[in-house]
């Protein structure tokens, strides 16, 4: 058991340290937009589509009209962490909810 624990601890330390270095070295905190060339070939999902996919993974997708813009920004931050959603995913969902409420 001790060997397994040591392996796990080393793995966690390496993963955390590496992740911190890579993550904190990035100067871009916002979702990086695609270049023009990428845009030409990329079909991006809409916020509405992501809302349907991401929310339904755990619970029924919420009605945008149930909260105002201020509430949605609070809920979005909470759900980003709770459901471990990607930054661009939650940003698009939040924009959709605020536009449709």
């Amino acid at each position: 058991m001790k060997t397994i624990h040591k392996i796990l601890v080393v793995a966690v330390v390496i993963f955390t340290t590496g992740g911190m270095i890579v993550g904190c070295s990035s100067t871009k905190n916002a979702y990086t937009a695609a270049t023009d060339v990428q845009d030409e070939f990329k079909i991006e999902k809409s916020g509405a589509q992501m809302w349907g996919e991401a929310c339904n993974r755990c619970h029924l997708a919420p009605s945008p009209a149930d909260y105002n813009d201020t509430d949605w920004s609070t809920i979005a931050l909470h759900m980003r962490v709770r459901a471990n959603l990607a930054e661009n995913e939650i940003a698009k969902i939040e924009t959709f909810l605020k536009s449709a409420n």
């Binding site: 992740g19 904190c24 905190n29 962490v81």
Partner: peptide, 27 residues
Amino acid sequence: VMYILNKNMTVRAGKFLLPFGTFMERL
């Protein structure tokens, strides 16, 4: 308490639901 370090990283401290599988944390 949680803090968004960057777009791929969030730190949390305190008493939190453990991501051991998905049932207790999410469902």
